[in-house]
């Protein structure tokens, strides 16, 4: 089958990345289709976060290709600033802008980068805030919100750009346990609405429910990939089995 027929949004081929002598990504191939939720798991330092940051152009890669919506990164008519408007990203650290209210945080991209009207963009922002249950906090500053609320706002901020694909980089890793659920519920809701997404997470229970496809990375390469159900019930490789076992007490 050709790429067009499968409606591929993101196509990564032979991606390589190293910091000095340290190789972080050593030939990674990933293909993400529209509407697909891909969950990337693996031990710390396996390169999964770096992979996401390469997709957003926050890191430069040294080998291989990244093709987003049919355009190859680094080619002539490819502009990261435009591409980032179509690739939403939510980080592990609470990354709201502390000097702006919730609404200003959400509208910064739509108004300044996408040049949309305030009326139209804020309408969408309010609708999205209602969906995550935070419409009443629209004029609050980030310091007045809990960690879980901030991450939900960060997700809304990315969604309000109407991205083609969303990247989640361990968004619950620095949250207190009781706040993890509210954030994962929001992501799950977004996935159910058909948003294309790449999720790096350590929450195996969530991965099992949310993922269409699971990619297990180790040592800068993909060690195993497959449909979520198969991967979690019957991993093919010994390494994946050992990794999954670390999450259960026996």
């Amino acid at each position: 089958m050709t790429a067009q027929k499968r409606d591929v949004i993101l196509d990564i081929k032979g991606l390589r990345k190293s910091y000095g002598d340290k190789i972080v990504l050593n030939g990674v191939d990933i293909c993400v289709e529209r509407g697909e939720a891909v969950v990337i798991i693996g031990p710390s330092g396996c390169g999964k976060t770096t992979l996401l940051r390469c997709v957003n152009g926050l890191e430069t890669h040294q080998g291989g290709t990244i093709t987003i919506d049919g355009r190859e990164a680094g080619s002539k008519n490819f502009d990261w600033i435009l591409v980032r408007q179509k690739v939403g990203m939510v980080f592990q650290s609470y990354d709201l802008f502390p000097h702006m209210t919730v609404l200003e945080n959400i509208l910064l991209g739509p108004l300044r980068a996408q040049k949309r009207t305030r009326e139209e963009a804020s309408g969408q922002a309010i609708r999205l805030l209602e969906r995550v249950g935070l419409a009443d906090r629209v004029n609050d500053f980030p310091r007045q919100l809990s960690g879980g609320q901030r991450q939900r706002i960060a997700i809304v901020r990315a969604l309000c750009m109407n991205p083609d694909i969303m990247l989640f980089d361990e968004v619950t890793a620095s949250l207190d346990p009781e706040m993890v659920r509210e954030v994962l519920d929001v992501i799950l809701g977004v996935a159910r609405q058909g948003m294309t997404m790449m999720i790096v997470t350590h929450e195996m229970g969530f991965a099992r429910v949310a993922a269409d496809k699971v990619i297990f990375m180790e040592g800068g390469v993909i060690a195993e990939e497959g449909p979520a159900k198969e991967f979690f019930t019957l991993p093919k490789t010994e390494r994946a089995r050992r990794f999954l076992n670390t999450f259960y007490f026996e």
Partner: peptide
């Protein structure tokens, strides 16, 4: 650094 990055990530110049 994440303030720079999250600003870049929403497509600002």
């Amino acid at each position: 650094a994440h303030q720079w990055q999250s600003a870049e990530a929403i497509g600002l110049t």
